[in-house]
Design a protein around this nucleic acid. Structure first.
Lengths: 223, 223
DNA sequence: CTTGACCAATGACCCGGGGTCATTTAACTG
DNA sequence: CAGTTAAATGACCCCGGGTCATTGGTCAAG
């Protein structure tokens, strides 16, 4: 059975080389992600994350000093990936309509619930129990990606100024997190929202986000 | 000293009449609010809430079954109060510009950080450990207030349809929670954001919300 | 191949905070 | 004033995040 276990393992029992450590780190992030997707931040236990990778609880804390740090690292990855995806789309030349841009953003977020859910948790939860260094590294990365996006935004939508481009990004960020929270709901709330007269409180994330960004951009253009 | 204690107490040691129970409930909500304003949801301990009212921890749980239920009740109060305030403003007759409406909303939220902070926590935290009944009661109340607001919105801004009025409310809600989270930041993050080059990540809640709503409404009118 | 040093992994342990409940006693009643 | 009710108490339980002395894989020098 020791053999069977070893066969399952991608990473050696003891990760001593840097690349093995990195691989183990990834395993832990993947486990955390899978558990988070199935439940919620509060419900994910560090012991479960460990168990899912076949490690002991204490080991997780060798890679991440706190639960919040683990999830902030996960968010960091997802955010980088998302910005890359979005910026790639935005690099497709030519002038766009506001609606096209809104669609592009909404589509880029399709299947990225995990990302937006974590984003919504960031300021209220994830930045609570984390070192200054990690927070700064994270924000540094956001800043870089945002700069690229702002530049591309101005290329696609010529009516944007450097100032309004930045504003658009902040407002889209706010809408993403706000709408995600309204759309993606605790089981208790889901049950309640099933009632017919609760319809006005139900939110379709993609549709609503597209509509909001489109309207926002039309407003900027009309100025 | 028993006398001194009694003098301090508004509510009798044992609240047996319904109105005394209600008063005690209020005391607890006030204590929770004060502590939350000074720190964060995670940092508020039920024992502290109890101590602040001169009661034992167990007593708090006679009034609220869980920590989340306590804070959802607090949010319920604040939300009702805010909607009342806003609707009162919106009742001032005549036709408004989109910018006027945006200002009215932003101003109504001035000094209501507690409300928006809790609102941002609602779906991610507060609806986690709460009975269906309480959730439903809460949502029922939101629904009622929203209906009134939607109607008033259409009076002030004639270019709104019943459908777009509802949309505006949902988008404003999303912006409120999203921007609050961006503006109102954990101490760690605050420190990081002080750095000069982090300026683009700093958010002035009132200014940004006003701008976003104004643009949104201009976009709707221009359609 | 063997040996020893290193350090990743372990898991028993600690602790703080949410939540419970048998007991106590303040508040009302006749 | 004695009896009844039920609000308040606080010792207690439990769970989950986080710690650290100990164990034993891993690797490289001989």
């Amino acid at each position: 059975m020791a053999g069977a276990l070893a066969a399952k393992r991608v990473v050696p029992l003891r990760a001593r080389r840097d690349e093995d450590k990195e691989a183990r780190r990834r395993e832990l992030l993947d486990a955390a992600r899978a558990l988070f997707e199935a439940t919620s931040f509060a419900q994910v236990k560090m012991a479960d994350v460990a168990a899912r990778t076949g490690l002991a609880k204490g080991t997780v804390f060798l890679y991440f000093p706190t639960k919040e740090a683990l999830f902030l690292a996960l968010l960091d990855d997802l955010l980088t990936a998302w910005f890359a995806k979005l910026n790639e789309r935005l690099a497709q030349g030519g002038t766009w309509t506001g609606h096209q841009l809104a669609r592009a953003v909404a589509v880029s977020l399709e299947g990225e619930e995990t990302f937006t859910r974590l984003l919504a948790l960031m300021q209220t939860v994830l930045e609570q129990n984390v070192t200054v260094a990690q927070t700064q590294a994270f924000k540094e990365r956001v800043l870089g990606a945002m700069g690229t996006t702002a530049a591309l935004l101005q290329e696609r939508l010529p009516f944007l100024t450097p100032e309004t481009a930045g504003q658009v990004i902040r407002h889209v960020h706010a809408l993403m997190t706000g709408l995600r929270q309204m759309a993606d709901i605790a089981p208790v709330a889901r049950e309640v929202l099933t009632l017919p007269h609760m319809a006005p409180l139900r939110v379709d994330f993609t549709a609503e986000l597209t509509a909001a960004i489109t309207t926002l951009l039309r407003g900027l253009e009309a100025r």
